[in-house]
Simulated scan of single mutants.
Amino acid sequence: MDSGRFVRTTAVTGTALASLLGTALSWGAPTAAAAENAPSGWESAALGLPAAHRTTQGAGVTVAVLDSGIDPEHPALKGRVAKIGPDFYNSDGLGPGDEDYGVHGTAMVSGVLKAAPKATIITARVIDDSEEEKLERLKDGVSPLAKGIDYAVANGADVISLSLGGGMFSDLDGSELGAMSRAVHKGVTVLAAAGNSGDELNDGNFPAGYPTVISVAATQPGGSRAGFSTVRTHNTIAAPGVDITSARKSGGYHKVSGTSPATALAAGVTALMLAENPDLTPAQTRAILMRTAHAPEGGHDPLVGAGRIDAAAAVREAADPPRVDTAPKPYQGGKEHFASPTGTSRISHPPIERDLLNIGLGAAGGGLLFVVVGLLLALRKRQRATA
């Protein structure tokens, strides 16, 4: 199973590109005919990809896959990656020729291309493939992910796919939040994996938890939530995430499970929508994905959000999108910004929780009393000894 961020497999040596790290590389115009598609699995039918592909295959749309690096020579990727960006992670000394480089990223790019075979792909490295979760914050206070997002926007990304989260990104980071906001402000749709912690550890997960991001949960055959898919109220939509046929860096293909491949597929479907209508805003894209999804019984829930994506329906609605008003609105309230009965003033705080405060002060006072008594007893014993 795909855990943390999310594929944990071993790969042999990839292509020797180590000397080229840190600079953007051009690989020419991507052509679907130059490479083979990853074999289709149950996910293709579940998403409705065959019907969607009769209308569009994502041509003219650029998807940035920010991940652990890639092997651009894999048949599923060869000739289809327009640009390989810098290694923003660059703290582990690894390069493309190393065993633990580009395993996860190669699989995720193949997932995007399965859904949108004619999309343009750009990549940058922002995580590694090790088992150990590492929180990377550079000396300048800007995370590798934030730098990767800014790079993607600067290089013409229409969609950003983030098959990462949890562990390494469990804390909200200001540099990442700012980068996400800049991306969406520029009209770029950002999708991120909901996480693979099941119904545990639900105290926060980023980047999926950022308000500008579409959080992608994973489903199993039949459409229900995959057991590992993290349950959170901010889950937006879902996509197949169990036994997804993905490119293996060492060659060939293997089955991958997790919210990582679900996110890659969802990013590919988003590319199909934008190819049908390049004027879609991120808000419209989110609304369409949610409105056309196979909704769970009872409506939107924290398990699969609005439900499993229907690619064909999403592409159809993209041609005539709903109007989503995201313009800033003037404040309409009065002196109090919560309605009755809350009545909280804009310039006051709610009363402090006195019970806990009193308990704490009492415990501290009791401890201080014990210390004083102990010192007095020790002093009396010393006086007796010297008398």
Rank of each mutant, 00 (worst) to 15 (best):
L191E: 03
E336S: 07
E133H: 10
D140M: 07
A208Q: 01
A194C: 05
G241E: 00
T31G: 15
G334P: 15
I127H: 07
R225H: 00
A52W: 06
K134F: 11
G4I: 09
F88W: 01
K83F: 12
I244E: 06
V12K: 15
P221N: 05
T285C: 06
A283E: 03
D67Q: 03
P341D: 02
P211G: 09
S68G: 09
V103D: 15
R232I: 11
D129F: 06
I149H: 00
A306N: 04
Q57E: 10
K118P: 12
R8D: 05
T62S: 02
A319S: 02
L138W: 10
V216Q: 04
D325G: 03
H349E: 14
A239H: 03
A29D: 13
A327M: 15
H349W: 10
A217S: 04
G58D: 00
D100G: 13
T23P: 15
A107I: 04
G360W: 00
I244A: 03
V216W: 04
G360I: 14
S215V: 14
E200D: 12
V159F: 08
S246E: 13
G79L: 01
G166E: 08
A18W: 15
R323P: 13
I237C: 03
A157T: 08
A192E: 07
K255C: 15
T233N: 08
A18C: 11
F370S: 11
G22C: 08
I237A: 14
G374F: 11
G198V: 00
M273G: 13
A179D: 00
A16V: 09
R8L: 14
T292V: 01
L375N: 14
P117C: 08
V371E: 15
L164G: 13
L145W: 00
D355I: 12
I160L: 05
G85L: 05
I70L: 08
R54S: 03
G187V: 01
E297D: 15
A275V: 02
R384W: 07
R323C: 13
G69W: 00
A51M: 09
S250T: 01
A217P: 01
I84Y: 09
A11L: 08
A318P: 02
D100T: 06
D129I: 03
T263C: 02
A226E: 04
N358R: 11
G187C: 07
P96K: 00
D2F: 12
D301K: 15
L135D: 15
N37S: 14
P221L: 09
T106W: 07
R323A: 04
G367P: 11
M108C: 10
E200Y: 14
H254W: 11
G105F: 09
K249E: 03
A218E: 06
E133V: 12
G305K: 06
G85Y: 05
K249Y: 08
T62F: 10
D355Q: 08
A194M: 00
L375C: 08
E99Q: 15
A283H: 12
V153D: 10
G79R: 05
N37M: 15
G343T: 05
W42L: 07
M108F: 02
A293I: 04
H53V: 07
A318G: 01
T189S: 11
L164W: 02
V242L: 06
